[in-house]
Write a protein that binds this DNA or RNA. Structure first.
Length: 567
DNA sequence: GCCGTTTTCGGCCCGACTGTTTTCAGTCG
């Protein structure tokens, strides 16, 4: 699948055009790139059907370019642009405060082409010699290069969420109203910074308190309505103060995404309004809405759009036509379908997992310890499996209010066979199969491998289907259309693994799976009782994939699941 | 380069903060 690759080339073209000061084209390329990136199917399929032009934002010219890119593997137009500006735009613009205009100036004035040269020039005091730049700019560049090197500035949602909640608790007493906004509210898999929105009658005091919190390392910006700080653990937190009657419009605005907001504002303009963070205003400058998000979407003729959908992936149009999905709710999930205990590589006993899950209100869980050959993960042999089965039977007799499915996580070998025999697996309630090695096979081979596993009638769920680790490991190469078709035909579920660094399937692939009639299974893959609380991260992915209750088997009754797992 | 409930040309989201400027350009979200 080349969606991601095509989108990247389009984004890079946009960057170079922007440096060349070309008007409007950069945005056209970005819009096209964004829509390619979030396409619910393989772009090569669209190309085969000659339907590239049907992608929003892709007209005749960009369609031609995508065609060339897919057919020849390169794009003459992009090559020519890149050769004209021999500058590593991506690298340079990763430094906060460096945008296209600055990159152009730096190149024109002192020939800077990459991060290394920028750092050298800043250290040697050459930046300040450029008109419009001074000592402060130079200092800031050096600081931000260091920051960019340290971690790229994006954090896993699973880790930032708790930080955001504790800051919110700290501020809560000082303000009249508060909400977390930004990508955290949209439950995006990685978070650039924490956005917090408050209403307060004493803004100056709140700003002083915020910038003076004891875990603040640096105050980046401090103003009357907006302040930004970097915490000791390097996470950036932005705080905005707004008026009560603008809280809804501000929340809408600061929740984003940027692309969603642009789309919504275009609708506003078309209907004769102006939308900004202070409210929705009509042609006479009269405020038409602002106190709540519902009010604003309503005034624009849209259904309320849940934050997780606000990515400009068709939600604005759907909201206009009353065709938004009836999203699965966090409370609809009644159980967790992947976890480990001390029987393999988990930290807690089966009882401890059951008790934690029951405390969370789960009706069922599946214990899915490793079995087979994966010795590094404590995989069990048949003998041990039989003993654990008896333990689970006993637990089911002892515990009320929760049912434990006896599961197993088997390994999918290079040829797609499983590392545990059918005579054992037939006695296991739910079999979760995953790839744990040989991640780098070619797409065709890899697709056959996964399909082989799914055609094994012991298999119920494919665990972490792409094997990606966010910011560390690319997912495996798969023909997703084929994989999802075979999954549906064989009644195999695709997992949304809720580990913070996995979230696999991701939102885009999960949406694709739903589109092809595949059911999803959320599993925390908990190796510790505390990990069971990651379940909401998985549900968030499902929501971002437009999933309804019926698409996610964790919402099913125990009876219905038993039947589903029997095949 | 794309697009259309001001359609085939003329538009293309909007405001705060910073650093460098004497009135604004650039960046960010």
């Amino acid at each position: 699948m080349k969606n991601r690759y095509v989108a990247e080339v389009l984004y890079k073209i946009a960057d170079i055009l922007e440096i060349k000061d070309v008007k409007f084209k950069p945005n056209a390329y970005r819009r096209a790139a964004q829509n390619v990136e979030s396409l619910p199917e393989d772009i090569e399929k669209l190309h085969e059907r000659n339907e590239l032009g049907k992608i929003p934002g892709v007209g005749k010219n960009i369609a031609e370019k995508i065609k060339e890119l897919l057919e020849t593997g390169s794009l003459a137009y992009y090559k020519k642009l890149r050769d004209g500006i021999p500058v590593n735009v991506e690298e340079l613009s990763s430094v906060e405060g460096i945008g296209p205009k600055t990159i152009k100036t730096l190149y024109r004035e002192i020939g800077i082409k990459n991060l290394e040269e920028l750092e050298k020039a800043a250290r040697e005091g050459k930046i300040r010699s450029i008109k419009g730049m001074g000592e402060k700019t130079e200092r800031k560049i050096l600081d931000n290069i260091e920051f960019a090197r340290e971690g790229g500035g994006r954090w896993l949602l699973g880790f930032v969420l708790s930080e955001a909640i504790s800051i919110k608790a700290l501020l809560e007493k000082k303000v009249d109203k508060i909400s977390v906004a930004g990508s955290i509210r949209r439950m995006k898999e990685t978070i650039g910074d924490v956005d917090i929105l408050v209403v307060s009658s004493r803004p100056a005091e709140v700003m002083d308190f915020f910038t003076g919190m004891k875990n603040v390392e640096t105050v980046l910006v401090k103003g009357e309505t907006k302040s930004s700080v970097r915490l000791e653990d390097r996470i950036q937190v932005d705080l905005r103060i707004v008026d009560e009657d603008s809280f809804g419009s501000a929340l809408q605005y600061f929740t984003g995404s940027k692309e969603h907001n642009i789309e919504v504002r275009k609708i506003a303009v078309r209907k004769g309004y102006k939308l900004n963070e202070y409210g929705l205003f009509d042609g006479n400058g009269e405020k038409a809405a602002g106190a709540s998000e519902k009010e604003i979407y309503g005034a624009l003729g849209m259904d309320y759009i849940p934050p997780e959908l606000r990515e400009n992936r068709g939600e604005v149009e759907a909201a206009m036509n009353g065709r938004l999905p009836d999203l699965i709710d966090y409370r609809d999930v009644k159980g967790d379908l992947q976890m480990h205990t001390t029987w393999s590589d988990g930290a807690n006993s089966t009882e401890e997992m059951v008790e934690e899950a029951r405390g969370m209100g789960h009706n069922f869980i599946a214990i899915t310890d490793h079995v087979g050959t994966l010795k590094i993960a404590g995989a069990m042999d048949e003998n041990k499996i039989r003993r654990q089965m008896r333990e689970v039977e006993k637990i089911n007799e002892e515990y009320d209010g929760i049912h434990v499915f006896y599961g197993a996580e088997v390994n999918i070998m290079k040829d797609g066979s499983l590392d545990m025999g059918r005579d054992v697996l037939k006695d296991v309630d739910v079999v979760v199969a995953g790839i744990h090695s040989s991640f780098r096979m070619q797409e065709k081979e890899m697709t056959e491998r996964v399909i082989n596993a799914m055609e094994n009638d012991a298999v119920n769920i494919i665990a972490h289907p792409t094997g990606r680790i966010i910011q560390k490991r690319e997912g495996i190469a798969l023909n997703f259309d084929r994989v999802f078709d075979v999954a549906r035909e064989n009644n195999v579920m695709m997992e949304i693994n809720a580990q913070p660094a996995r979230l696999d399937l991701d939102d885009i692939h999960a949406k694709m799976a739903i589109g092809r009639g595949v059911k999803l299974s959320v599993g925390t893959d908990a190796h510790d009782a505390n990990h069971l609380h990651y379940i909401n991260l998985g549900v968030a992915v499902a929501r971002r994939a437009w999933a309804e209750k019926k698409n996610v088997i964790n919402t099913y009754s125990i009876k219905k699941l038993e039947k589903l797992f029997e095949k």
